[in-house]
Nucleic acid binder design. Structure first.
Lengths: 160, 160
DNA sequence: AGTATATTGACGAATACTGACCTTATGCAT
DNA sequence: ATGCATAAGGTCAGTATTCGTCAATATACT
């Protein structure tokens, strides 16, 4: 039972794969909302929750007459770009949930395999667990450590 | 006498083998809890204790409307004798050099890819480094931690 | 008895969706 | 140029759903 958000998300994804692989699509908010029988702000919700930098997208838009919404797929010219992007989306501290959704998105994008994802989660759990039970460090500090480890692991793959 | 946790665990395992072998199942926490006549958080306990990355599973979930829990099986659980074998090779404590040569051997035999090897090495290095510089633990203790992490990471992959 | 595992329930946090109200761009009439 | 009408899209707060966490309690296993 797919949610409206998921339906709109996959509709937009189809636009990306139509004909050749495009690196952007543009659309009109009102039309799309009418097409799906929902309020226009629902489209903003889909964009804000699904087409994020964490998932590899950027969104541009313009208001007024001839307004539009343009969704761009992020692509990296050089390995260093990829590493910078990884550091940006992870930041200095990250929760377990955030880490997991980044990993899911990376697998979705084909940047890592499911086994690689598994290895990262095992390592994250280990540091978190050890930090908590052996070293008694605060939840915040644990999230800082997790961010550091995640950046290093994903960063190392970006170069290989 | 099978515990509720075991009953729910085998129910989920059956979902994996229904029809063809699936690589994931999704479910709704509340429904499952009602089905087994328990509180919803019981489901979390089953997931946390049985469907862990160390055993080859990943769990994705989403709250709110249209929320769900999705369990992915990445690797089949490793038979006990193989787990024993890996634990024997690694032991209770391991140096960075020993760890590296085990990983090289595993890659040589095609059990892990070079990227997987890289991930493990990065995680081991991080643990060692953090143990030394942040927690000031002895070299011996660090080798104990490394052995534990290495066992968990290799164990999760169900190597043949 | 003491430790580890299992179970419960109260509370908190995240997600989906809507609708009212706000901001910005275009272009035409003056 | 100026101003106003029109035509986009943005934001925010409220509501209903779901799931997660954590601490307390109970049970089972040495």
């Amino acid at each position: 039972m797919a949610s409206l958000t998921e339906i709109i998300e996959s509709y937009i994804n189809e636009l990306f794969t139509e004909e050749e692989e495009r690196d952007y699509v543009s659309l009109r908010r009102k039309e799309l909302a009418e097409f799906f029988g929902c309020v226009p702000s629902q489209i903003n919700y889909v964009l804000r929750s699904r087409f994020t930098p964490e998932r590899g997208y950027l969104v541009e838009s313009q208001r007024g007459g001839h307004g539009y919404i343009k969704i761009l797929r992020i692509c990296y010219e050089m390995p260093q770009d990829k590493i910078n992007h990884i550091e940006e989306i992870i930041g200095d501290s990250i929760s377990e949930q955030e880490a997991k959704s980044i990993l899911a998105a990376f697998q979705e994008r084909g940047l890592i395999t499911s086994r690689e994802r598994l290895l990262v989660e095992v390592a994250l759990r280990f540091t978190d667990e050890t930090g908590a039970s052996v070293f008694n460090i605060s939840p915040y500090k644990r999230n800082v450590l997790q961010a550091e480890l995640l950046k290093r692991m994903l960063g190392s793959l970006a170069l290989s």
